[in-house]
Every structure is written in structure tokens, then in C-alpha cells.
Amino acid sequence: MSGERIGWFFSGALHLGVVVAVVLGLPSFSFHKDDPKPPPVIDIEFTQIADETTVTAPEPEPVQPDPEPTTAAREEYVPEETAESVPLPTPKPAPPKKREPAPKKKPELSERQQLANKIRPKRKPKAPSKFRNLSSVIDKAIKKETAAIPEEKPVEKKVTEKKPDFLAGIRRGKIGAASLRDALSQKLAGCWNFPVGAKGVENLSVTILISLRRDGTLSRSPKYVDVGSLDRDITLRTFAESAKRAVLRCGPYEAEATKLYELGEDSVEFTFSGKEFSGG
């Protein structure tokens, strides 16, 4: 192989390596779904209650152009035909909660009685311990024994030089990562609200990626990872939004960022799972 061909080959491999490093290594180059856009203001036609309530929506009336950017609907007033009704008195308020009976006050004591209560009988002097003599006997016996045993010469221990453990750093890193993971999991659980018992919540899961600065603030806004279309599934959307709120509410992550940088990382991927929210 000629020197020129080797050069091309080497250059190609180098470029390939650089591309792989850039795509995988820099999170901003990864393909993350953009945030869902906030919904536009929508129009609602407010209908009267009709006898048949599964009727289709009436044809929209021609609407005058609205100078405002908001788009509220209009409706012609149709008098509601309601059944004759008998007015009822105002609803009874909820019965007041029974108060817990207050604890009975102690009868007040006179000054003399208080003084009398303060007087306590003096303690009796303690009886001499039965073990006092016994312990002195034991002490003597120990002295005798130690005198009888000749002093042993200290044995020179062979000091073996520790070999550098290359895996120790990795092990420490693993332990550090596990404790940081636990700490973050607990912290986020305290910031996350989602209603228990929503239908299908046990199957919901969303992953959010955050990047931290050394001071614990977010270096950019949290990103959903492979979340699919949030606009189509309202439950998934609210679930994902509640997770993002939790991430934002829990910040800043000062202590966690310090540990994270010690591990040589600067980003965290949170996976929120609804398994425990089924309510059953």
C-alpha cells in the first residue's frame, strides 16, 4: 500500500471517529422532540340544552372579523324552554364538625399545696456494691497473670506494597452515581404531582433530559426524549407536562450538580413512570 493510500485511509477513519464523537457525545446534536406548543385560543359555541342532546353542531354563522387576536364564538340567544319548577329553599349547610372535647383543666393548686408537691423524700444512700470486692480480686489476678507472661517481641510485619487498583475509581464512581440517583429520585418525588387513579396511568412513562451548570441551574430548558406525539394523547400530554413542572420546581440542583461533575457528567435523564399511580 502506498503512503498516499494509507494517508487517505487514516484521514477517513479520523473523520469518521470525529463524526461519531460529535453525534453521540454532544446532547444538543441528538434528536429530541421539540416542546409542544401552547394551544391557541379556541372558539366555543355555547348552546342551550336541547331535548335531544346528541345533535350535531349547527352550521357556523358568518362571523364578523374580530379586531382582537382572541377568537371567541358567538351565539344567538334562544330562550330555554324549561319545565315548570318549584323553587326550593337554600341547601342546608354541611353539619358543623363536632369539636373534640377540650381536655379538662387541672384544678388550681394553692401555693402551699404547690410547695408541698415540690418536696420529695431524700434518696436513701446506696448499699455498697457486692461486686466491689470481687472486682479488686479480679484486678489482682490479672496483674499476676501479666507478670507471669514474658513479653513477646514485636514481630516485624512484612509490609506489602499496595498495588494501584485501577477499578477502585470506577467502583467509587458507581457508588457515587447510585447515591446521587437515589437523592435525585427522592427529591423529584417531592416535587411531582399527578392524580392517582387516572385511566391507563400505569402504562405512562416519559423521559426528560436536563443539563446542569456547576452552580446547579439548568443550562437549557428540559427536553422530552422520544416522547411521541403529545398533541394526540391528552393524558400523556398532561403526564409529560406534570413531569416537566416537577423538574423545574425542584431546581436548582446545587449539591447534585457538584456530585454530578465529580462523576464527570453534566446531564441527567429522568424517567417518570406512572406504575405506582394506578390507585388500585
Binding site: F9, V23, S185, A189, W192, N193, L263, E265, S267, F270
Partner: peptide, 28 residues
């Protein structure tokens, strides 16, 4: 070349490695 590419890929993977945290509980 093989060693070089392996080192590069390993470096890139270590760069992209993130701490992964599972959140399974919330507040009611």
C-alpha cells in the same frame, strides 16, 4: 487504526453517558 477508532468511539460514548434516574413516586 483499529485502536484509534476504538478509543474515539469509547471517548464519545463516555461523553454522551448521562445519569439515568427513575421517578416512580410523586406527592398526592
Amino acid at each position: 487504526i483499529l485502536v484509534f477508532v476504538t478509543v474515539l468511539v469509547g471517548f464519545s460514548v463516555s461523553l454522551q453517558a448521562q445519569l439515568k434516574v427513575d421517578i416512580t413516586r410523586g406527592t398526592v
